[in-house]
Each structure stands twice: as structure tokens, then as C-alpha cells.
Amino acid sequence: MTKRALITGITGQDGMYLAELLHEKGYDVFGLVAGQNNPKADLLRVTHPYVEIISGNLLDLVSLIRAVAHAKPDEVYNLGAISFVAYSWENARLTSDVTGGGVLNILEAVRFFQDSSGRDVRFYQASSSEMFGKVQEVPQTEKTLLWPRSPYGVAKVYGHYMTINYRESYGMHASSGVLFNHESPRRGPEFVTRKVSQAVARITLGLQDQIALGNLDAKRDWGFAGDYVEAMWLMLQHDHADDYVISTGETHSIRELLDIAFDEIGISDWSERVHIDPAFMRPAEVDELIGDSTKARETLGWRPKVGFDELVRMMVRHDVDDQSKRAAGAQ
């Protein structure tokens, strides 16, 4: 029988890559979208016409119960969240409600469906390396103490432990992927990798002169989102639910990101092109985030395929092409 999957947060980069992966594997794919006039939903209908869009909101349990009952999923992937870390300080309450409380709501909706239908549903929770925050060991594993340093990180910890609780309390096949930073040309423009790739594209096209950034020495373990959604799927194919760190095991600084991005457009010295703006400094910076994905590699057979250099150049090339089309359309 054809498998059915429900994805929350389907209009984000992970949701779109995951929908493509599941469609290729023959799934019927359902996507939860908040709001009837969501412009991202209109784009999704064009780029992913095989996805059946369902209206629902992580803050509204009743809407989630209805969505799950309609989709009748074999697998639920909870990718929905307010995921921009910097914004979480500006609106800690909303971030906590959506990114944390939303996990409880979707878990409850899945549990209700299981109890009422007698069907088993496998559940995936998108946890985050931001949960490690003030890291207690390097590299970080599934057993590393969580010490979040942002409202977003705190909310993700809540959702992570709630997923574990439902697995242990109700026997649900509920797994969490502790994903380290993962990027792509579909990443939102507010994230530093996409902010850099778009700015570099505009600089090479003569559309802007500089880019304003914060801490250039911040380091992250960056991978490709298309690789990481495969890990999500693999977790739900395994007989036993568990938690897995998904990472490349390498860290790179913002400076290295700039080196590669500017090199792609033929600029070796970018010092005059970058402005340090204190407004982009985090109130509480996380320490060195680098993941140990040994468990996922050995248990799930997962491996990242796209390296950091290739990822950055892919994003810059995409944005040069995109910004060129935008500039041509404005003329």
C-alpha cells in the first residue's frame, strides 16, 4: 500500500526537500500550512503540485487533530517552528509557544489519531544543535548535556524531551533528529549563509557594495539540507525509535564562509566589502558546535554527501542567477 506522510513546516527548506524525497519514494504527501492566504502555500502549489495542502496551526490542537485525521498518515514529520534564533529574543513567548508547545500539540494529535483509529504512526521531531548552546563537551553527541543559550534553544529542548516522554510513556515510535546547521539555496534570507550568498551575488552584479555581519569568528557545523532530510526519513524506517545527532563533524567560521563565497565571484580580499555591525551580535553566543554523528552513520547508514565548499558555491551560483533575473526583470 502507498505510504502517507504529513509534514508540518512544509514551506521551509527542509519541508520542501523532504516532500521531494518522499514523493520520489512513492508516498502520498500532505503539508500543513497555517493561514488560507499564505503566499508560501501558493508557491508550494507551483513547485510541489503533488502535495495536498491542509490548513492547520501548531498553536491550535483542534486543527491538528483534524489535519491528522484527514491525512491518515503512516509518518508525521514535525518541522514547523519559528526557527530564526535572533528573532527568538525579540519574541520569546511566541517562539516558546510555537517551537516548544507546538510539539506537544502535534504529539497529542498523533496520539489521539492512534487511539481512535488503531493505526500506528511514526513521528519525527526536528530537534536542533542550538539545544547544546553552552557546550559541555566537544564534539556533541546524543548524550551531551543540553544547555541552551537562546529562547529558541530552550523551546527546542522542551520539544525534544516531550518527544522522548511520549515515546517512553505511550510507546510511540517517536524519534528526534538533533540536526546541526544545514543550508541550501532555499534557506531563508535572514540566515547568515543565505545572507552572505545573496549579498555576494549582488556585489558581483554591482547592486550593492557591502554586507553587514556580526561575529565573524563564530563557528558552525554546516551541512546540506538535502542530505539531512534523508536522515529524517531513515529514522522512521528503523524498527526502534531513538534520537540521533545529524552533522558533518566539521566546523567552519563565518570568515571561511566569506572566503569561499567571495572566491566564487573572483574576489580574494573581501575586507573592504564586509562591515561589522554590533546589532548582529547575539546577546548570548553559543560556543563551538560540532556534532558527532557516529550513531546515525552506524545505525542508519547515513552519510552527508555535499561538503562545505560545494555547498557555499552552490548557494552563491544560485543567487547570482536569481539576482540577475531579478535585476533584468526590474529594467
Rank of each mutant, 00 (worst) to 15 (best):
E272R: 08
A212P: 02
E250P: 00
I260C: 08
P151S: 05
Y228L: 10
Q114H: 12
T294P: 00
V229A: 00
V33I: 10
D42H: 03
Q323H: 08
V85H: 04
M172G: 01
R273T: 03
R317C: 09
R119F: 06
A67R: 10
V33S: 00
T2F: 00
E190P: 03
A92V: 02
V306K: 04
H23A: 07
E264G: 09
H23K: 02
R122H: 14
S150I: 09
A71G: 13
G226C: 14
Q237M: 07
A231G: 13
L21V: 15
S127D: 11
L205E: 01
L207G: 07
L234V: 11
V138R: 06
L205W: 03
T248N: 07
T299Q: 12
E24V: 03
S197T: 12
M314A: 12
K325C: 01
N165T: 03
G15W: 05
E20I: 03
W270F: 11
T251I: 13
Y161P: 01
P304A: 13
G102W: 04
S184A: 07
G9C: 11
N78A: 04
Q13I: 01
G153R: 07
M16L: 15
S150H: 08
E250N: 11
W89D: 06
A261R: 01
V196D: 09
G291W: 03
S63T: 15
E75M: 11
W147Q: 06
M162W: 08
A327Q: 13
G80M: 11
T8Q: 06
A109R: 11
H23E: 06
R119Y: 02
I7S: 05
V103A: 13
E183C: 09
R186C: 07
D42Q: 10
D60K: 09
S268K: 13
R167M: 12
V62W: 02
S253M: 05
W270I: 09
D243I: 14
I276P: 02
D209E: 15
V154H: 12
N215L: 07
E310T: 13
E264Y: 06
T99N: 03
F308C: 14
R187D: 15
S116G: 08
D14K: 07
S88E: 08
W270V: 03
R220E: 14
K325M: 05
I106A: 10
E230H: 10
V312R: 00
A81S: 15
G9W: 08
I246H: 06
A212E: 12
V154Y: 10
E272I: 03
